[in-house]
Write a protein that binds this DNA or RNA. Structure first.
Lengths: 214, 214
DNA sequence: CGCGAACTGGGACGATCGTCCCAGTATGGG
DNA sequence: CCCATACTGGGACGATCGTCCCAGTTCGCG
């Protein structure tokens, strides 16, 4: 009664989980989290519905793995490449411009990240916290590099500047996704770089002499 | 066959629309946009499902009216109250602190606004643009007031600073909703105020004399 | 070579969704 | 006072959702 099925493929669970996660991210980016049903995901991955619940016990579990994997794989798209002979402000502008280009190149990706954050805030707060800790780590690394490379020093705790930088990139993302105004985004980004620069000051000489204040 | 219904109430359409919009916002805030079904809304509003489609032709129409109404009613929660004798940085700190308090007092409201923005980006881009134009208007008004009140002048076009300020508040909102870290938020906000202050300079005397540069 | 276990396809279940319909009720203009 | 109409309650429809089940297929290990 059952026909010979020629397309049946046997794939180990781990690989299938990865495939489903990737497919899910694609669906979220293109059609939104609300439309990311189990059926839509398996359709995107080209497998049957049963494989979904063989690999994951629930949709929630898939999303959990998705968020974890995506935020851990998050790279510093912000790091400027040419460091030599630039001022801090120039470095910040380049870094932020790099982020804007990253955003412009693949807006759906950042939109998906945003939707996942919002989902996580409601459904898996720890995941959202982890995601933002990672963002801040990346920001802090970039800021520290920029400062040390230009012989400057942050006047405010690095973690605080990093937090502020994440605010800026988040805002940049949200606003640009809304209006797609490249020119305005670049202006705002330049202003942000200029403003952030005010939080740094030239580093005192390498061998710190006791200041003659007492 | 039909029993006497004693609870039936006749309400004009306009009022019912307003009631439904208000109920919908409550549901979005408490349970998320994904859970904001027509049935959930009418349950919150205490009416029957038919009234929903008597007042609105579709769920989408309700959300459209909801977004429009809410963003038009958006107030400047950011305006500092005591203006006299403060520096620009102090004024900015107070304004941002005011916003943080507003956020802390009713986090679900801002979370709902964020979810509505995300929905609008995908489904009604014009509404999202309108929403963010409104945000920028409010920010620009606050910034202009702060500058004129402290005898300073923005070195960067007001619209650009306003855009940047919206970035900061958006980022503040998102991050705080994720980690609820009041202390870190206040630090970041103070840093933001300090950084933004660098974009302003003392206003030249009221009667502008020609500068002796030529 | 054979068999247990890993894996897959397809279909099914109950819940919930948006939308619609219709019989019935209250009300204001004549 | 009465009737057209503005309005409401409740139920229904088809679609889609997450989840589950089971018969059947393939593979690795003995």
């Amino acid at each position: 009664m059952v026909e010979r099925v020629e397309t049946m493929v046997r794939i180990p669970v781990e690989q299938r989980r990865r495939q489903l996660v990737a497919a899910a991210f694609t669906v979220i980016a293109t059609r939104g989290l609300a439309a990311t049903s189990a059926r839509a995901v398996v359709a995107e991955a080209g497998m049957s519905l049963a494989s979904f619940h063989y690999a994951f016990t629930s949709r929630e579990e898939l999303l959990e793995m998705l968020i974890t994997e995506v935020t851990d794989g998050e790279q510093a798209a912000v790091l400027p490449q040419e460091l030599a002979g630039k001022t801090l402000e120039e470095l910040l502008i380049e870094g932020l411009t790099g982020y804007l280009e990253h955003l412009r190149a693949d807006p759906l990706r950042e939109q998906a990240m945003l939707e996942l954050t919002q989902y996580a805030i409601r459904s898996q707060p720890e995941l959202a916290q982890h995601q933002y800790r990672r963002y801040r780590e990346i920001a802090a690394a970039a800021l520290q590099l920029a400062a040390s490379e230009t012989g400057t020093r942050w006047q405010v705790p690095l973690g605080t500047v990093a937090r502020l930088l994440v605010h800026v990139t988040d805002g940049l993302t949200l606003t640009w996704l809304v209006d797609r105004d490249d020119r305005a985004a670049r202006d705002a980004l330049a202003a942000a770089a200029r403003a952030l620069t005010a939080l740094a000051a030239p580093e005192p000489p390498t061998a710190p002499e006791p200041s003659p204040q007492e």
